[in-house]
């Protein structure tokens, strides 16, 4: 899936995560801000990366501001951000959900 524009999903409320996904030439880079980065940073990045790959995204720049979100929330916000960035919100890829 191709990232066509910059898109955001999520809020800065506690237990949520805000993700901004934008275009990149190649590869996935994640800039993560989180109060729990020391203990859950790797896990958060792994959830984002796995979700992106499952949706067929191979090139994207991700800026994530985490407020203590659980994995299920991170996954949901990533999916929403990708669909917005790929302009596929009208035709969601249900099978990857």
């Amino acid at each position: 899936m191709e990232i066509k524009k910059t898109a955001i999903a999520g809020t800065l409320e506690s237990s949520d995560i805000q993700l901004m996904i934008s275009q990149a030439d190649s590869g996935i880079t994640i800039d993560l801000q989180s109060d729990v980065k020391k203990v859950f940073g790797d896990q958060i990045e792994a959830v984002i990366t796995t979700t992106l790959k499952a949706m067929g995204v191979t090139a994207a720049k991700v800026k994530a501001v985490d407020k203590g979100a659980l994995d299920c929330v991170i996954k949901a916000r990533t999916i929403a951000a990708v669909q917005r960035a790929a302009e596929t919100t009208d035709t969601p890829a249900w099978e990857v959900l």
């Binding site: 020391k38 859950f40 896990q43 994995d71």
Partner: peptide, 10 residues
């Protein structure tokens, strides 16, 4: 189970 297993602090 809810939050996952944290990486040990260094």
């Amino acid at each position: 189970k809810r939050v996952g297993t944290p990486k040990p602090l260094e």
